[in-house]
Design a binder for these strands. Sequence first.
DNA 1: GCCGCGATGTAGACGCTGTCAAGTTGGACC
DNA 2: GGTCCAACTTGACAGCGTCTACATCGCGGC
Lengths: 207, 207
Amino acid sequence: MARKAAYHHGDLRRALLDAALAQVEDEGVAALSLREVARRAGVTHQAPYHHFADRAALLGALAAEGFGLLLRSMQTAQAAVKSGARARLVAAGKGYIDFALAHPGHFRLMFRPELHQGAQVPEGGAAYQVLVDSVAAAQAAGEAPGGPPGALVTLCWSVVHGFALLWLDTQLSTETTRKDAQAGTLAMLDALLAGAAPGAGSGTKRR
Amino acid sequence: MARKAAYHHGDLRRALLDAALAQVEDEGVAALSLREVARRAGVTHQAPYHHFADRAALLGALAAEGFGLLLRSMQTAQAAVKSGARARLVAAGKGYIDFALAHPGHFRLMFRPELHQGAQVPEGGAAYQVLVDSVAAAQAAGEAPGGPPGALVTLCWSVVHGFALLWLDTQLSTETTRKDAQAGTLAMLDALLAGAAPGAGSGTKRR
DNA sequence: GCCGCGATGTAGACGCTGTCAAGTTGGACC
DNA sequence: GGTCCAACTTGACAGCGTCTACATCGCGGC
């Protein structure tokens, strides 16, 4: 509920977050300064300190919102899939990568804990839980290999997280288009999970 | 060749790189300032500018050295394995993760291109080539699944890159020890590659 | 042998940053 | 209508990267 603000400015906290996010997305988090954010919001350089303890607190709030968006992106991608348990797992990964590539600055910020000293984010846990549940469901359905679920969760997370950052931070880009690379990687992951699954299970897509 | 320096200071360029690396490792790259580096090296705040055009150039040189170390770590890990082609591929991944977890600040810096504007690094290409060759060898030996080699390369790279960064940047750490998590993830990767391989191939380790 | 000159390092300044301290404004409530 | 406190402003400080100008060291040509 909150119902704060609407004093002088209207909702400065929101305006600051929006301005900061815009700056993070087009200049990168390293180039973000509180004074520039304040300037964009049309207030003095000290006004932000009435809403955020310091720079890290603002970035922490931004990161928290990011995890909410990440969770929704994963859920949206999963909702588009009805078929199998493994397909839903792969779809969650697609949602993860979609978000990361659509909001590079935001995504990178979220995984830079030194910038927002340990801002705890429940949505982060929720997004992780989506992954854990999807892996468990795929294993239960015999559509993914057995073995320790934790290791499989970590591997799937590593694949999508690593792919997103490699695409954003390296010259990987030169090879193909983004959509092709993403689809190719996810199809390979699907095939590996299918191939090593206890049940037979044909790969969902094979060309 | 080279044989520069040894004028006033001895080898200030080397000293600056060492000081910067030390600071990156214990404070993080965000906390690195040229002035502090100069202070550690015992020179004035302007001296570094005779060896590096600006902050980005120093970080670029540091990143370049990092890729050399990464390459060596991968080669060392591979050299310890004689057996199969897939085992050598997994070993390269182990070397990758080993380096990342042993030198977190250095590793993160290497994959933050906005900090060292496009400093081109041949060692980076060489490390990538090790991966490409290992994947090709494993496929040729029938110890890894077929399909487009590019997709498999990207997936393997994503796994180790993603794992390293997740381990460093999230609270993943709470679950198990580093060695266990790393070994578990690599074993799972090995099993997936084995399970989906055209040839039979039993997983190297299964418990 | 010495001398000039470029490579190396110093000194000071500028505008930028994050943050601390103190003053001002204006809506909400009694 | 008066009071209070959150929201915001103003001003200051140290530290940062980088620019310009100056000092010093030692090698190569005469």
